[in-house]
Design a binder for these strands. Sequence first.
DNA 1: TATGAATGAGGTTTCATTCAT
DNA 2: TATGAATGAAACCTCATTCAT
Lengths: 229, 229, 229, 229
Amino acid sequence: MTKEPTKAATPTAARADAKGRAPADAAPASNRATRAAERRSAIVEAAMEEFIARGFAATRLDDIARRAGVAKGTIYLHFKDKESMFEELVRTVIVPVVAKLNALPPPTGSVRDLVEAFAGNFLREVIGTRRGDLVRLIVAEGPRFPSVADFYYREVVSRGIAGMRALIELGIARGEIREKNLARYPQILVAPAMIAVIWQSLFARHAPLDAQDMLRVHLDLIFGERRTT
Amino acid sequence: MTKEPTKAATPTAARADAKGRAPADAAPASNRATRAAERRSAIVEAAMEEFIARGFAATRLDDIARRAGVAKGTIYLHFKDKESMFEELVRTVIVPVVAKLNALPPPTGSVRDLVEAFAGNFLREVIGTRRGDLVRLIVAEGPRFPSVADFYYREVVSRGIAGMRALIELGIARGEIREKNLARYPQILVAPAMIAVIWQSLFARHAPLDAQDMLRVHLDLIFGERRTT
Amino acid sequence: MTKEPTKAATPTAARADAKGRAPADAAPASNRATRAAERRSAIVEAAMEEFIARGFAATRLDDIARRAGVAKGTIYLHFKDKESMFEELVRTVIVPVVAKLNALPPPTGSVRDLVEAFAGNFLREVIGTRRGDLVRLIVAEGPRFPSVADFYYREVVSRGIAGMRALIELGIARGEIREKNLARYPQILVAPAMIAVIWQSLFARHAPLDAQDMLRVHLDLIFGERRTT
Amino acid sequence: MTKEPTKAATPTAARADAKGRAPADAAPASNRATRAAERRSAIVEAAMEEFIARGFAATRLDDIARRAGVAKGTIYLHFKDKESMFEELVRTVIVPVVAKLNALPPPTGSVRDLVEAFAGNFLREVIGTRRGDLVRLIVAEGPRFPSVADFYYREVVSRGIAGMRALIELGIARGEIREKNLARYPQILVAPAMIAVIWQSLFARHAPLDAQDMLRVHLDLIFGERRTT
DNA sequence: TATGAATGAGGTTTCATTCAT
DNA sequence: TATGAATGAAACCTCATTCAT
């Protein structure tokens, strides 16, 4: 009475190669594997939208399928069940974020400029975008999906904290930051940005928040006098 | 508004009277209205626990009823439906918070002492307690329950922001705070506290966070040199 | 993400007694417990028909519900799921059979008369009736429901075999049966009856089988010359 | 009857020829028709295993395909649908049984020896083997597949009964069998063998049954005194 | 008021069948 | 011929809501 399907691996990836030769006549953009990958992305994309809009429990696979333009059953060719889909989804969406964090340029110029550039970029790319909603989604569903919270902590939060700490220590060493204890709580550095993300989702229509400006004020607190821009 | 007008003689009540004796356990302080209120608060309490643990959609009225020690139908004597219950629930739980905010003492002593006392109190009462989870619940369900987000903004956030702004302006006027622009973003003042609340729910088991200590560092940033305590 | 309902116990059986007194005014035939029991039997009855007609896997709960005159959800108030329903069902239906086996009269008269009366009765009550189909159902689904096969073996088969063996030994002792080895294989005694049951389900429309007459011939083999009736 | 008429040039074939060379692996004894027949019998074999293990409704074509080492779609090149496959399958598997029955040697020696040899052979080849499970499968699915039951009756049962009857009449004529009425119910002769088959599937792990020995006792009943072997 | 059995719409998941390659 | 991704009808099961008691 039990089975174990465990699908979700890339389905037909290397069949052509089994012939022992490169598929010379394979049109690069329309073979089976490519179309399957496209469908998978469509599902991931659609699922993101729905999960963000309604949360895990209230999201219907029917709606995901319709939005992705596939049949309900197709989802099960790519994901074992709704829970696995949610978990893999978050991983899939987080991966580029991690890549971006790892690709940060080495610190040149003042630490404040670095932080401001980085945080400004973060705000532009996250606030009010789907990626910001992803943060809210993780906050919302984390307790019910410990594996998701774990993954997010391991891949994003702990690395981000470590990176911030390194920057803060550099700023302290260069005399840009006076408050030495800040290195113990890099969370303080990013707290306003997180607040801005959440504020955007919940209260923007009551009181819009200029996240970039708030960030500058926050950095003034940390780095001292605002520079004359 | 969700309750039916109280009817005079319901079947059960009539049958009890038919026994020809006064109900022995009806103490003067435990009349019908009182017991109804007790039931209602039992339901509210149970619903809070369940909604926090599972979120709105995944919470079953069955579980709420069992936890509250009432029958499922009883919930519908107090609330119109699940959504109304959730909305009223959040209001009910938030009211004492508002009351507390309104009962704050007038500012005497230094602003830093005031803020530190208030925030310290906030952290003690919120971090790791059910009230902290309530914040996360609102973050999680806010987009699907605009009325809840609106209510929370109106009753708690906007008042809190206003109060913080007044304190900040006082601090600036007294020379305790140098960064004048902070008054435009009181969110910065509370951001680390919010982060601590969320951190506690999601990442505490990976990396515990000393919220009180982090708060002191944050206040040092705002008020300058840490005083020698 | 896991729960354990485990319903299926008699739902509201003893609630009235919780009051500490016998429910004097409880109409014997129409209280809640009685109606629940009636519904349960209706479901059991309907499920028997459907399982016999289609087998376990091909039977739809929808059809059972419709036949029983209840809603689909009602089934789940009495049974945990389809498998549990099937298993409990077989138990429920088998119980009276066991009771009947236990209530057999002590052997008086000739062993042949006893066996003939018993087997004749068996054939009348089983062949072509729902109880006969139950035997076929157990044969069909037994390998996939070991607990059902086990239960049937323990409660019916092993007792029946033991009873037959005792009768055979009595017959040998009395000189009615010459073949002493028969006591080692009481299955031989009942084999034609079982064949008749299966024949009835599968081949009756091609070649009707007079089970009672076949039984007499079989008993003649065992007990020797047919008596002049 | 379930196969499409063979078309001349299918896409795959055409593409292979486009390479301008003869397919190197096309041995003379392994042409297309042969390989198709091999695939078909692989499907039949796999389907037997699955249908026996799970019954018709619970068997998945996916599992049959995987076990047979073909793609799911291939099954539909050989069989119209699942039901047709089941029906043809049973026919296919039964055919050799019929052939064997027809090839029985003419009766020489004593009837008891004949019956004992035949039945002993039957038990060895059927009990605990796949062919025995086929009997159980027919018992299980017969009512839902009248055509299968019909076919089985026509090809196996009726011939077997007729053959048994002839043997019995010969035994009566030769004086080996005293019970003349046995010729009217040849089922009695085979009943213990059928019981043994079913017993093996359902109850063997509770109480193993020595079918060969039981058969000898049964034949003693029919042919009188056990011969001194 | 309070109960909880009953309902049935609606959700997730499976799987026989099709069809472009 | 052969493939297996895709489909979508249909199954099982849940649970918010109702209502007779």
